[in-house]
Design a protein around this nucleic acid. Structure first.
Length: 860
RNA sequence: GCCGGGAUGGCGAAAUUGGCAGACGCAGCGGACUUAAAAUCCGCAGGGGCCAAAAGCCCUGUGGGGGUUCGAUUCCCCCUCCCGGCACCA
């Protein structure tokens, strides 16, 4: 859409139009309208600014900030159209709205682009931001740009560093060895995404290796219990997200039990700690299974190269399965070490195996194998012909029917212990309690809780990220960078190449530093932070984006938080949202914020699909928002993205669909062009109470529409049906045009319905709504014009009330819609009981069944 | 594999509480307007059958199989396929 296009169409219009008969142009010209309002809005940067020190009720609506990949895609348009509609609705309801936008601008793609185009990551990133920001403005999203946040700039990331120091001070940041993907040809670390079928994405013939590196971790597991518990507070979050988070945290109660390594005559010293959720089955343990990477395995295999080789094979199998993501489906393999461990409950020696299905990063990396009562142990025992010993008998409802030989494995808790020494005869849950206490008393175990959740590894061996503010001094070891020296600036204009190692490691001015403790030479940490750190606290920064003394001011944050509505893709349901929740809790414990949770309500929208597949360059099915805006207008593009599917579902993009929306906007435009008569003396008069049927019908439809849309904004957010409802209203108006032409519809009602129609349209189609608002002679700002009020009396259908008799007795009244079938007496049709049920429980029953006939009724 | 979600006309979808399945829109067909086309306006339309056609009527239909119910797209059980997440894409 260039200026040339606009002037051209305008010229055609002028020559086309007999100016006498049709003083107004009836053609809906989206480009003309949108250019006009775009320019007006541009000239007032404070238009969408949140008020400071406002007496109004606050409303913080936030969409997940985008990664500046280059251009907006339709997923963005959809996400921001949802948020924008809500923000505009809240403005119209008199709230002080905070509606910010920013850029999650650190990350891998900038480095890949740097390698591909030889462009510095900063330049590439900032260029993309400028481009995408211009696109957002053109679409007309109502953001308060005065609090824009760009995470790759030092005024933001210095606070990442500050938070890291605070985490470190509190023991919540620590170093440990952890594995990374390593491509020997690139001589660099690869992201999971860069590993394809176990090989490097740049070198398809090169197997990716696993290397152990010292890395920084954040103790999110310290908050595991609270993160789990507080999910119950998040009533405004989708149930599915809460379920996923609950499962991700994966709390399980169980017990740790130490099996001593049997090492011949000497008193055994080495202990193998196993985690089990079923200590009650321990008398059925017939082997110990270790993860192949369990530290003790090295010792057990030290004397046998043959055994070592077999274990290495298991490691390889496990890694391959993990990469493929089907670790649960792995074909179970194991190897007997020939050594034994002692079951502390009965002193029995059980063989120690190493198995490829045991994971080092869950529990203790060691399990006791109870084939009779665990599915995986059962499969494994069958395969390797290990003993299967029954120690739980199911308890049947009828004691006579107790099954002596249940089908194996028997997994239920509804059982009774047998062959379990002094614990025989106990029921499972009682036994779990007793046996845990017993283990604790004799100091070989205890009841414990484990989580599936792992600590958060934030080290990235990459350039384009926040430098971790740590120093390594030969004398003083690990030394944090003093707070006053922040930010540790990421050096710019450095060469990003494929050649090995971390790019920062090759910048001596960066690496070489001075130890703040001893003043001697120190080496700077060259790893950068996971970009999820950036996005874990950005909503707080929006509220006080230019603060250079603190990440934000507590008073300001306390006013705006929690976020009233957070909106983003369902793909972030676990990681990002978990990290953000963790960060909030950590900041609360620091006294920086008052809220326990970041967001009151969450909405997860579905993906935008084209031709049944995710939009991607390789499939060539990418729809460009710019092209849509140029062809159909921004209003049509955003409205279609809301109309084509309910926002929480995936959306299948069809170009022809957007044409329909454009047509609809034209219908609205033309109706108002023809019927706006603000100069008419009756235009602003009160709507008469007594209306002819044709007018009454319009009024009823209007109020029904207001109700539907208002209700949806309150909860369900099915904007697709909201837009359908507006279409129905417009169809009703077109159907009544003859009556309007004959003056049957009084002018005050005609004015009222047009004003309300424009107000209803404002959240979805702001450009057109503003144009029409002006056309209706309104001088107030549409952005903050009051949202239409629903009048139930005016929405009500005409009804006939009739008594309900059942078996001759009056049971209540039914109200039948006047336009439905004739009234119906239920007497002979339904049983007394049925009618009673209908009348008792529910207020409204739309239809009830009677043999051979369905009637519409409303029970009062 | 595990966790979460989904499947309804030719297509996107609707049915808010278990009550007339397919609102609204796209594509299609027919009509009006036009010299014509575009645009616009009006109408028809799940599938099948009875019928030359229409009106009307009948059968059938919400991924597949089973169940609960007077009644199921909706609730329960089992299955198939598709999508998201699985901790270094963001």
């Amino acid at each position: 859409m260039s200026a040339d296009d606009n002037s051209e169409t305008a010229t055609v219009d002028r020559s086309d139009r007999p100016s006498e008969d049709r003083p107004k142009d009836e053609r809906y010209d989206a480009q003309r309208i949108e250019t006009k309002w775009f320019e007006r809005w541009q000239s007032d940067p404070s238009l969408y600014a949140a008020e400071r020190d406002s007496k109004k009720k606050k409303y913080y609506v936030l969409e997940m900030l985008p990664y500046p990949s280059g251009v907006l895609h339709m997923g963005h348009v959809r996400n921001y159209s949802i948020g924008d509609a809500l923000a505009r609705y809240m403005w119209m309801n008199g709230y002080n709205v905070l509606h910010p936008m920013g850029w999650d601008s650190f990350g891998l793609p900038a480095e890949n682009a740097a390698i591909a185009n030889n462009t510095p990551p900063r330049q590439w990133t900032l260029g993309n931001i400028a481009n995408m920001k211009a696109q957002m403005k053109r679409i007309g999203f109502a953001y308060d740009w005065s609090c824009e946040v760009t995470t790759c700039l030092p005024d933001y990331y210095r606070w990442n560093q500050w938070f890291f120091l605070k985490l470190y001070e509190r023991g919540l940041a620590y170093r440990k060895k952890s594995k990374v993907n390593w491509c020997p040809k690139c001589a660099t670390v690869l992201a999971n995404e860069q590993v394809v079928n176990g090989c490097c994405w740049r070198h398809e013939d090169t197997l990716v290796e696993q290397r152990e590196l010292e890395q920084w971790f954040l103790r999110i597991t310290n908050y595991a219990d609270e993160l789990l518990r507080d999910l119950d507070k998040l009533g405004g979050w989708p149930e599915k997200v809460r379920t996923m988070q609950r499962n991700w945290i994966g709390r399980s109660e169980g017990a740790l039990v130490d099996f001593k390594l049997d090492s011949g005559d000497e008193a055994p010293k080495v202990k193998i700690s196993v985690f089990t959720t079923r200590i009650d089955t321990i008398y059925g343990a017939t082997s110990i299974q270790l993860a192949p990477e369990h530290p003790i395995v090295a010792e057990l295999t030290s004397s046998s190269p043959d055994l070592r080789a077999k274990v290495d094979q298991l490691i390889a199998e496990q890694r391959k399965a993990k990469e493929k993501g089907d670790i649960g489906e792995i074909e179970k393999h194991g190897v007997n070490t020939g050594r034994y461990a002692v079951n502390p409950f009965n002193g029995e020696k059980v063989p120690i195996w190493v198995a490829n299905y045991i994971l080092m990063d869950y529990g203790t990396g060691a399990i006791m194998s109870v084939p009779a009562h665990d599915e995986r142990d059962y499969d494994f025992a069958k395969k390797y012909k290990l003993e299967i010993r029954l120690v739980i008998l199911p308890i049947a409802n009828d004691p006579e029917e107790t099954i002596a030989e249940p089908p194996l494995p028997f997994l239920g808790h509804d059982g009774m212990l047998i062959n379990s020494g002094p614990f025989s005869g106990l029921e499972c849950d009682a036994a779990i309690k007793k046996m845990s206490e017993y283990a604790e008393k004799y100091r070989f175990g205890k009841a414990t809780v484990t989580y599936r959740l792992k600590d958060w590894g934030i080290s990235r061996q990459r350039y384009w990220g926040t430098p971790i503010p740590m120093l390594y001094c030969e004398k003083d070891g690990i030394v944090p960078v003093p707070e006053k020296e922040l930010p540790v600036i990421l050096p710019e204009n450095i060469e990003i190449t494929l050649a090995g190692g971390s790019p920062l490691g090759r910048v001596p001015e960066f690496v070489n530093a001075t130890c703040p403790k001893c003043g001697g030479p120190a080496r700077r940490e060259t790893d950068t932070m996971d970009t999820f750190v950036d996005s874990s606290w950005y909503p707080y920064r929006y509220t006080d984006a230019h603060n250079d003394r603190a990440p934000f001011d507590k008073k300001i944050v306390d006013y705006w938080f929690p976020i009233d509505q957070y909106i983003g893709g369902v793909e972030h349901a676990i990681l990002h949202l978990m990290y953000m929740r963790f960060w909030t809790k950590f900041m609360r414990d620091m006294g920086l914020v008052a809220n326990d949770e970041p967001a009151e309500r969450l909405f997860t929208q579905g993906m935008v699909i084209k031709d049944g597949a995710k939009m991607s360059k390789s499939l060539g099915n990418v729809v460009s928002p710019d092209e849509m805006v140029a062809r159909y207008g921004a209003d049509a593009a955003r409205m279609y993205s809301l109309f084509a599917a309910p926002p929480d579902r995936d959306l299948d993009w069809q170009d022809s669909g957007i044409e329909g929306i454009q047509r609809f906007l034209g219908r609205v435009y033309r109706f108002i062009v023809r019927n706006a008569k603000p100069k008419d003396p009756a235009w602003r008069a009160a709507v008469p109470a007594d209306l002819p049927p044709a007018a009454r019908q319009i009024q009823r439809k209007l109020h029904q529409t207001i109700k539907r849309i208002t209700d949806d904004f309150q909860g369900r957010w099915h904007f697709n049906t909201c837009i359908s409802a507006i279409m129905e209203l417009v169809n009703t108006l077109y159907g009544a045009e003859e009556a309007i032409g004959r003056g049957i519809v009084p002018m005050p009602l005609l004015a009222d319905v047009q004003r309300n129609l424009v107000l209803l349209l404002a959240p979805f189609s702001p450009y057109l709504a503003h144009e029409l608002w002006e056309m209706l002679g309104e001088t107030s700002t549409l952005l903050k014009a009051p949202w239409p009020k629903y009048d139930p009396a005016l929405a009500k259908e005409e009804e006939i009330v009739i008594p309900v008799q059942v078996n001759g007795k009056l049971r209540g009244t039914i109200v039948v819609a006047a336009d439905s079938d004739e009234p119906f007496v239920i007497e002979r049709a339904l049983s007394d009981e049925k009618v009673k049920r209908f009348l008792a429980g529910k207020q409204i029953v739309k239809r009830i069944y009677v043999p051979g006939k369905l009637v519409n009724i409303v029970v009062r």
